[in-house]
């Protein structure tokens, strides 16, 4: 029960208003800091993973240079495109969906990712040539600037395919990213900005392609081993 003089309780005490405002501001500021912290942690995870991959690639390249043809077996059995590279795409697409993520940092991560993919592609082609392998891979070009409605669906189709067939390599590239090797890759394959675009066996396919379409274009898929579990590989989820 209040024993204070009448009306006193109702009188506004400005200090209370100010203290409450201060606390609220501090808590909201902390929330902003925490969310940035988590985004930084995610970005750092991706950077670390990419560094690992670049070491992987470098070591396989070195191994390839060192060893002669008789070691083809070892190389073909090892997965050049490590599963880590696949999962990076998912983490990148999560970061892209977040507000307040450092755009420059994100773009730099994406450029690095594209370079790693191209390096992996080249290495794989070199290995295949030398060891007479017949690699099954798809190049996928997308845009997430709002000018490609089917890109999200196409990305998920490819994610699903690479989950079902862990040996299938899907290289996905943001068409709009300014990385010189990527521009060269686009020029070599003559890819126009009519996305989504898929390059399968040196042929360019524009527009959305379903799982059945891709199976028809790429009958070799049937010869690949199916994943025993749907979680065997995390696919490249590109948007």
């Amino acid at each position: 029960m209040d024993n204070e003089t009448p009306g006193e309780a109702r009188k506004a005490r400005w200090l209370t208003y100010v203290i409450a405002f201060g606390i609220t501001t501090i808590i909201f500021g902390t929330a902003l800091y925490v969310s940035n912290y988590f985004n930084d942690v995610r970005a750092a995870e991706i950077r670390a993973a990419q560094d690992n991959i670049s070491i992987d690639i470098l070591s396989i390249e070195t191994q390839f240079d060192l060893l002669a043809e008789q070691s083809c077996r070892d190389i073909s059995e090892s997965s050049v495109l490590s599963t880590e590279l696949r999962s990076i795409a998912e983490r990148l697409s999560y970061l892209e969906s977040q507000t307040g993520v450092n755009v420059e940092e994100l773009t730099s991560l994406k450029r690095y990712y594209s370079l790693l993919q191209i390096k992996d592609l080249l290495l794989m082609q070199r290995v295949s040539e030398k060891c007479r392998l017949n690699p099954v891979f798809i190049l996928y070009f997308y845009s997430n600037e709002g000018d490609c409605e089917a890109c999200e669906d196409q990305g998920d189709i490819l994610t699903e395919l690479s989950r079902s067939y862990p040996q299938l390599r899907v290289y996905s590239f943001d068409y709009n990213l300014s990385v010189s090797p990527l521009r060269t890759l686009i020029n070599i394959n003559n890819i126009e900005k009519d996305l989504p675009a898929l390059v399968i066996k040196e042929e360019v396919y524009y527009g959305f392609r379903s799982v059945d379409d891709i199976k028809q274009i790429l009958p070799e898929l049937a010869t690949l081993q199916m994943a025993t579990s749907t979680r065997a590989a995390t696919g490249t989820k590109a948007r």
């Binding site: 929330a31 969310s35 998912e90 669906d153």
Partner: peptide, 23 residues
């Protein structure tokens, strides 16, 4: 469009949203 069931691409780790708004 894709025939992929929505829960196949659901990852619980991503479900915990740490954006400023959600915090």
């Amino acid at each position: 469009a894709t025939g992929i069931e929505p829960w196949q691409s659901f990852d619980p780790l991503f479900a915990l949203n740490t954006s400023f708004l959600w915090i």
